[in-house]
Simulated assay, not measured.
Amino acid sequence: MKIIQANSSHIPLLAPLFDSYRVFYKQASDINAATSFLKERFSQSESIVFMAFIDGEAVGFTQLYTTFSSVSMLPYYVLNDLYVNQTQRKKGIGSALLNTAQEFCLKKGFKGLALETATDNPAQKLYEKLGWKKDSHSFHYFWRTNS
């Protein structure tokens, strides 16, 4: 397995994974929109993407976004997306992508990584195995526009 930091040249390999990730979360498949979304993120330097390859085939990715903690006055990453092709699961790819994100965060001197996941997502076991702590002392709220 090989993990790389993706750039815009990887979009043709990344977009199908990103589209499958969205379908996993019950969104309609739209490879053109997925490609446009990724192009925009890369062109604006708005995210960091790591991709996993096995035998030259793109099999998974994780995407990080930068944000800040006003209390600690430090930047941190939101690990917004983590996806491994269904046929490639249980091979350590998710762990490798998470470990790569953690190493990158340490290298950058950021406060840490945050993620949110569905309450029924079985990946919670993986997160906890790798040292992620469930935040049980605060609630997550979201305000949505009409769109």
Rank of each mutant, 00 (worst) to 15 (best):
A34Y: 00
S70Q: 03
C105I: 08
T35M: 00
F18A: 09
Y83T: 02
Q102I: 15
Q27N: 12
Q63A: 11
L79Q: 06
I31S: 10
I31M: 09
V23Y: 04
L82T: 08
E116Y: 06
D120I: 10
S36N: 14
I11F: 01
F68A: 10
F110E: 13
P16H: 06
T87L: 12
L97Y: 04
S95N: 09
G109V: 06
T66W: 12
L115M: 00
R41W: 03
L98E: 04
S72T: 15
S72F: 11
D19V: 01
Y76N: 03
N80F: 07
V78C: 11
S72I: 10
N121G: 05
L98M: 10
Q44I: 11
F18S: 07
A28M: 11
A28Y: 08
Y65E: 11
F50W: 04
Q86T: 14
S29T: 01
L13F: 10
Q102Y: 15
Q86V: 15
F53N: 02
Y77H: 07
T119G: 13
Q27K: 11
F61W: 09
K125F: 15
Y76G: 01
E57V: 12
L38M: 05
F53P: 00
F53T: 01
A28T: 11
T62H: 07
T100A: 07
L38W: 02
L97V: 04
L82S: 07
K91H: 09
A114L: 14
K107T: 13
Y25K: 04
A101H: 02
C105R: 04
Q44G: 15
D30I: 09
T100N: 07
T87S: 15
I54H: 03
A58K: 00
D81H: 01
Q88I: 05
Q63V: 07
A58G: 00
N99G: 13
E40A: 13
N32F: 12
K26A: 14
N80E: 11
V59G: 02
Y77K: 02
N32H: 12
L126F: 00
N121M: 05
